[in-house]
Computed example of a mutant assay.
Amino acid sequence: MGHDISGLHHVGHVVRNMEEALARYRQLGFTLPPPSYPTMPKAAGEPPEPFGAANTHVYFPRNFIEVVTLVGDGGTDRIPADAHLVPLRVPDDKLPGLLAAIRGTAANLTACLKRFQGMHIVMFDSPDIDGAAARLEANGVGHGGVHTVQRPVETVGGTRMVPVRYLEIDSHEPGRARGRVPEGRVGIAENGTLDAQRHVDHPNGAVELVQCMMCVADAELPDIERRYENYLGRPARSEGFARTFDLDDAKVTLVPESALAGLLPGEHAPGLPAFVAYAVSVRDAAATERFLRASGVPLAETAAGEIFVPADAALGVAIIFRQAG
């Protein structure tokens, strides 16, 4: 019987300043399109202005990294010169509902940044999100139901919108906002067809998002392992002191706080639990290392001998570069 979770759909890096993030990611050798900033009037008859959240993406053929920031009330001083302003047009009677939804997103981002700048979002990929939703419910995992949105996909013929069905997992803790668990926003997404997605060439040779790593308090590791067994529908395996969930084409690793520095020397968790690192596969690890060193990027080495950019040099999340294959 196949699993209803196949891999990583995307991770979300929440940053304080989009212009700084664009410069850093491009220094790291990732190709990103200009960020999108939604604009809309805050009341009927008012002029549109940037509002809520803005984002851009590091695209791979099967998944992506989202870079997202909070847009201040009417503030434009932090909007990059090449930003794409996207007008959101809705009938006047629908405006209050949309404003409320955007304010909810903004509140979530504010809560993330109060904790720390870094990775706060992990979405798993599913070939059968309805089956995944039913399995979660059977296992007592709350979620907000399956929703559909449109996301931009870069194709050989330009950008087109592709439907994405997703759900967000709720915490079992009383008083926590819907769609949030202690480590951030975790959910499942099912893409529409990606057959037409254009392959984006990244100067650092990156080809796929292949791992996310979460640091947890040592005493909480068994409980969080059980929680993710329910999320992912499979058991973890022991990997030293860590626990790893092997997906079809990616993995999720839970690391006790006491073992983090052993796996990623020099790293520490900004809070617990927290997503502390993600890994991308690259065509030629040696070439990637040469590129990063030539770009002046600080590098360290994992316990497994892979290069990584420390969180302090990557706006709050360690980025591991792994040889593909």
Rank of each mutant, 00 (worst) to 15 (best):
P35I: 01
S36K: 03
S36W: 01
S36A: 06
S36H: 01
P38K: 01
T39E: 08
T39K: 03
T39S: 09
T39D: 01
M40I: 05
M40V: 01
P41Y: 03
K42E: 10
K42S: 03
K42P: 00
K42T: 11
A43I: 00
A44Q: 00
G45A: 03
G45K: 01
G45E: 02
G45F: 02
E46L: 09
E46P: 00
E46C: 01
P47I: 10
P47Q: 13
P47K: 11
P47C: 10
P47R: 13
P47F: 11
P48Y: 06
F51S: 06
F51E: 12
G52V: 07
A53H: 10
A53R: 06
A54M: 15
A54D: 11
A54L: 14
A54K: 12
A54T: 13
N55S: 15
T56F: 04
H57E: 07
H57R: 12
V58G: 05
V58S: 11
Y59G: 02
Y59E: 14
F60P: 08
F60T: 12
F60G: 06
P61V: 14
R62Q: 15
N63R: 09
N63Y: 12
F64I: 08
F64C: 06
I65K: 06
E66L: 06
E66A: 08
V67W: 04
V67R: 05
V68E: 03
V68W: 00
V68T: 07
T69C: 15
T69L: 02
L70A: 09
L70F: 09
L70K: 14
L70Y: 10
V71N: 01
G72L: 04
G72R: 11
G72S: 09
G74S: 03
G74P: 03
G74E: 07
G74R: 07
G75Q: 14
G75N: 11
G75W: 02
T76A: 10
D77S: 15
D77L: 12
R78Q: 14
R78V: 09
I79F: 06
P80L: 05
A81S: 13
A81P: 01
A81D: 13
A81K: 13
A81V: 13
D82P: 03
A83P: 10
A83W: 11
A83I: 11
A83F: 09
H84T: 10
H84G: 01
L85V: 08
L85W: 10
L85H: 14
L85E: 13
V86R: 07
V86E: 11
V86N: 04
P87Q: 04
L88H: 08
L88N: 04
R89L: 03
R89E: 09
R89H: 09
P91V: 00
P91S: 06
P91G: 01
D92H: 04
D92Y: 01
D93F: 08
D93Y: 06
D93S: 09
K94M: 10
K94D: 04
L95Y: 05
L95M: 14
P96I: 02
G97R: 12
L98P: 04
L98K: 10
L99T: 06
L99W: 06
L99D: 05
L99G: 09
L99K: 08
L99I: 14
